[in-house]
C-alpha cells in the first residue's frame, strides 16, 4: 500500500465523520429547543464543514483520476431540476451571508453529464463566488453552439485578467496565483469538464467577467 492509497482510505473515514458532524449541526440549528446566540456562526461552521467535504471529494476524484479509476456516469438530467438541487444545497449559507442565490433556465432544457461530478464543480464555483459576490450569485444553463453551458456568476469585482480564458486541464495549477484552494478547485473543474466527451467534442471550463452580472463568471461547457 503506498501513501496515496492510505490517504484515499482515510478520506472515506473523514468523510463519514464529516457527514455526522453536518447532520448533527443541522439538528442543532433547526431544533426549536436550542437557543443559539448567533445562528450565523453555526451556519458558517456548517459551511466550513461542507467546504472540507467538497475538498475531500475533489481530492478523492483526483486520486482516482491519477489511478485511471474515475468512472464517469453520464446520464440525462433536467437542468432546472438539477440546478434547483444545487441551489437548495447552498441556499442556507448564502442566506446567512445575505447573498441572493437563484437560477434561470428553460424548464425543458436537459443535458448529459455525471451529476455528482458536475455538482462538485458547481458547489466549488459557488463557494468561490460567495467570497467575491456583493449581493447576488446567479446560476444559469443554456443550449449554445451545439453544447450545454452552465454558468455560475456573481456581482463582485470579477476575475483578475490573468485568469480569463479557457482553463487548460493539463497545466491549470500554473495559472494565476490565487489562493491554494481556488487553484485546486480550478484544476479539478477543468479535469471533470474534460472527462465529458463525445466522439468529436470535449467539455471545458472558461472564465470571464461581466456576463449577465458584473462580476466573475465560470462557464462549464459540456458536449
Amino acid at each position: 500500500m503506498d501513501f496515496s492509497d492510505i490517504l484515499a482510505s482515510s478520506i472515506h473515514d473523514i468523510k463519514n465523520s464529516l457527514g455526522m458532524i453536518l447532520n448533527n449541526l443541522d439538528d442543532l440549528i433547526t431544533s426549536p429547543e436550542n437557543h443559539i446566540k448567533d445562528p450565523r456562526q453555526t451556519r458558517l461552521l456548517q459551511d466550513e464543514a461542507r467546504r472540507v467535504n467538497s475538498n475531500l471529494i475533489q481530492l478523492l476524484a483526483l486520486y482516482k483520476l491519477g489511478h485511471a479509476e474515475l468512472v464517469v456516469h453520464v446520464a440525462e438530467y433536467n437542468l432546472e431540476d438539477f440546478l434547483d438541487e444545487v441551489i437548495a444545497d447552498n441556499q442556507a449559507v448564502c442566506n446567512a451571508l445575505d447573498i441572493q442565490l437563484d437560477q434561470s433556465c428553460a424548464p425543458d432544457l436537459s443535458g448529459y453529464f455525471d451529476s455528482e461530478l458536475v455538482r462538485s464543480v458547481l458547489d466549488n464555483a459557488i463557494g468561490n463566488a460567495r467570497r467575491y459576490a456583493k449581493s447576488r450569485i446567479l446560476l444559469s444553463a443554456d443550449h449554445e453552439n451545439d453544447g450545454l453551458v452552465i454558468r455560475v456568476e456573481d456581482d463582485g469585482t470579477g476575475f483578475p485578467a490573468r485568469f480569463i480564458g479557457r482553463l487548460d486541464p493539463t497545466h491549470p495549477l500554473q495559472q494565476g496565483e490565487g489562493a491554494g484552494r481556488t487553484k485546486l478547485g480550478h484544476y479539478f473543474s477543468a479535469q471533470i469538464a474534460s472527462l465529458h466527451k463525445t466522439s468529436d467534442h470535449q467539455g471545458y471550463i472558461q472564465l470571464k467577467n461581466g456576463h449577465q452580472l458584473s462580476g466573475g463568471c465560470l462557464e462549464l461547457w459540456l458536449p
Binding site: K15, N16, L22, T30, N53, D84, E85, A88, D89, Q91
Partner: peptide
C-alpha cells in the same frame, strides 16, 4: 444519493 447529503438536498430530491 451520495453521502453526505444535506437536508435541503434530500427534501428537494424527494419533491422531484
Amino acid at each position: 444519493l451520495s453521502k453526505p447529503f444535506t437536508k435541503e438536498l434530500l427534501q428537494k430530491r424527494l419533491e422531484k
